[in-house]
Design a protein around this nucleic acid. Structure first.
Lengths: 170, 170
DNA sequence: TAAGATTGAAAGTTCAATCTTT
DNA sequence: AAAGATTGAACTTTCAATCTTA
C-alpha cells in the first residue's frame, strides 16, 4: 500500500490542487485535508516498513506482534485481534499464517470454546518484536519532523474524527 | 486498501496502546500519532469510496479524472500524472486501463515526442467527474466531523511532514 | 441459528524486466 | 545510454461462500 516517489516537485501539489478546486467548487479545505491524510499515511507506512525490513516484518505484521506483547498471556483470539487492529478477519488469518510460518507466533486452541483459535507469541517472536521496536523508535515512526505539540494536535484531531465515525464510545 | 470495521469498541484502542507503550518504551507520542494517521486514512478512503461507488469510481480513479479536469487541455502525459498523484508508473497504467475501458479517458499519442502517451478526458469522463465531485463534496471527503480550523491544522502539520520528507521544495 | 475462522476469487499495488523512442 | 510506458509475477487486502462449533 506504500506509494512511493523519488523526485521532489518544485511546488506543493496539494496546495495547487486546492487553488484549482476553490476556483470551481466547494469544500476545498476538506479536499486539501483529506489529500494530506492520504499522503501522510504513505509517508509513515513507507518509513516504518523501511525500518522493519531488516527484521522481515511489515507494519501489519509488526502491529500483530506488539498487540500480543501487550496482552496478559501473550495470546489473543484471532477475532479480537481483528477488532483491535481494525482489520478484516481474513487479513488476520493471512498475517498470522505468515507469522506462524516464520515461527514468530503459533496457533493454540481455546480451552472453553473450541470455535476460537488463539494466536500465541513464541520466544522468537517476542525477542524479534522487542528488537524491531528499537528500530521504529529510532525513526520515530516516520514522524521525526514533527514537534511533540504537532504530534498531539494530529492525534487529537483524528481522535475526534474516529469518535464521530463510531470507532469507540465514551 | 480500505480496512473496515462495524462494531464500536467501548474504549479508545489507540489511547490504550499508548498507555501500554509508555509503560515500557520511548516515543509513545509518535506511535499514537502514526497509528492515528493510519486509521484516519482508512476512514477517509472508506467514506469517499462509498460516495463514489454509485458512479463506478474509486478514490484512485477519481483523482485521475480530477487531475485531468484541472489540466489546460484535459490531457496529461502518463508519467506526469504519476508524479502529481505520487503513484508508480505501473499504477497509472493500470488505472488508465480501467478508465479507458469504461470510456472515461482515451490514450492519445504526443505530437512531438512519440515516447509519451497522453491520457485525455472524454466527454463522458468530464461529465461523470463533475457529478462525482458533487457526491464527495456532500460527504465533505469523510471529514464532516471536523471544523474548518481543525482541517487547516491537519493540512498544516502534514505539509511540514511532507516538506521534511522531500515531497516538494520551496 | 449464529459466531469464529478459513478458503478461493477478484482487485489493486509494487518490483523487475522489456520494448520503443530519443 | 537514457526516458517513457507497458507487461507479467508476487504480494496484500477485500468479498462471498464454506466449515466447524456453540
Amino acid at each position: 500500500v506504500a506509494r512511493s516517489r523519488d523526485a521532489a516537485l518544485p511546488f506543493d501539489a496539494i496546495e495547487e490542487a486546492r487553488r484549482h478546486w476553490d476556483d470551481r467548487w466547494e469544500e476545498g479545505r476538506a479536499m486539501a485535508a483529506a489529500t494530506s491524510i492520504m499522503r501522510a499515511q504513505q509517508l509513515v507506512l513507507a518509513e516504518v516498513d523501511r525500518a522493519l525490513r531488516p527484521f522481515g516484518l511489515t507494519f501489519a505484521r509488526y502491529e500483530v506482534l506488539v498487540l500480543l506483547l501487550f496482552s496478559r498471556r501473550g495470546s489473543l483470539p484471532m477475532g479480537k485481534m481483528g477488532d483491535r487492529l481494525m482489520v478484516h478477519p481474513t487479513s488476520v488469518t493471512s498475517i498470522v499464517d505468515r507469522l506462524e510460518r516464520d515461527g514468530l507466533v503459533c496457533r493454540v486452541a481455546h480451552e472453553a470454546d473450541r470455535r476460537i483459535i488463539l494466536a500465541e507469541l513464541t520466544a522468537d517472536g517476542r525477542e524479534l518484536a522487542l528488537r524491531a521496536t528499537k528500530a521504529v523508535e529510532a525513526v520515530r515512526f516516520g514522524l521525526g519532523e514533527l514537534s511533540d505539540r504537532e504530534l498531539d494536535q494530529l492525534t487529537r484531531v483524528v481522535t475526534k474524527l474516529r469518535k464521530g465515525a463510531g470507532d469507540f464510545t465514551g
